[in-house]
């Protein structure tokens, strides 16, 4: 089958603004979109830039817009699209374009770093493992599926409107540590994100949950943080 790929192009060395370029390719229903990009690059246009590595949805490199929706290029096959012979491929929204489909992720990782994404414990470490209930683990398990692809944050309408909003991915990481029974910094973690640019920036619009390629119920997880903040306020007043 012949498929057409209309791909966003921008080269900072020569372009003042982006434009679209059309490529035509023989495809099979089981080809990944990433396979198609690779073949365009190998066989037609070696200048096409995009990120990729593991090619099976675990490294989180290749989130991009495919036909107007945020997807991982390696996790979508030609057969997954009804318009199987026409594709529009664009970079992730929200971020600045470095070249073609490559965006500047630094602001995204800065926010990640801001939520102190590591276990904080003021308890002495036992000689062996700390005990942890399997039930507790199951509660924050959805957050462990996160591959930092930035799909959720790029999709979030609040993130687009407010550049200071932490965004769903960073808050999801916060959720992971807040609800980990081994972490003892719950209080200061909650205080840090109990702001309009923190967890209250979330207006429960579900776009993050809708686009997450790992099926994480992001909005619900953020809702659990909000619930805990309110509970804490109640007990304190």
């Amino acid at each position: 089958m012949k498929s057409t790929f209309i791909i966003y192009r921008f080269d900072p060395a020569v372009d003042s603004e982006g434009h679209y370029q059309e490529y035509s390719l023989e495809t099979a229903p089981t080809d990944k979109i990433l396979d198609c990009l690779n073949r365009i690059r190998w066989e037609q246009d070696p200048t096409l830039a995009y990120r990729f590595s593991c090619a099976h949805g675990i490294c989180g490199s290749d989130a991009m817009m495919i036909n107007g929706r945020i997807e991982l290029a390696c996790q979508k096959l030609i057969r997954d699209f009804k318009t199987a012979n026409n594709f529009v491929i664009e970079p992730l929204p929200l971020f600045n374009v470095v070249k073609d489909l490559v965006v500047d992720m630094n602001p995204f990782f800065e926010k990640h770093r801001h939520v102190r994404p590591y276990l904080i414990s003021d308890l002495d470490e036992p000689e062996r493992e700390r005990l942890q209930e399997a039930e507790n683990q199951r509660f924050f398990e959805p957050a462990l599926r996160c591959i930092l692809c930035a799909s959720c944050t790029a999709a979030c309408p609040i993130s687009r409107a407010n550049p200071d909003y932490l965004g769903p991915a960073a808050l999801l990481r916060s959720f992971r540590y807040i609800f980990d029974s081994r972490d003892t910094a719950t209080g200061s973690r909650l205080a840090q994100i109990d702001t309009d640019d923190g967890v209250w920036g979330c207006k429960t619009m579900w776009w993050c949950t809708d686009v997450c390629p790992k099926g994480i119920p992001v909005t619900k997880c953020l809702g659990q943080i909000k619930r805990l903040v309110r509970e804490k306020q109640k007990t304190e007043s």
Binding site: Y118, L119, E125, E127, R128, E129, R130, L131, Q132, E133, A134, Q137, F140, E141, L144, Y177, D180, R182, D183
Partner: peptide
């Protein structure tokens, strides 16, 4: 393994929490 656990790696647990 214990060191990883202390750093925060979320290993699956037994019913006893190990």
């Amino acid at each position: 393994i214990y060191e990883l656990e202390h750093m925060g790696v979320p290993f699956n647990r037994t019913e006893e929490g190990r």
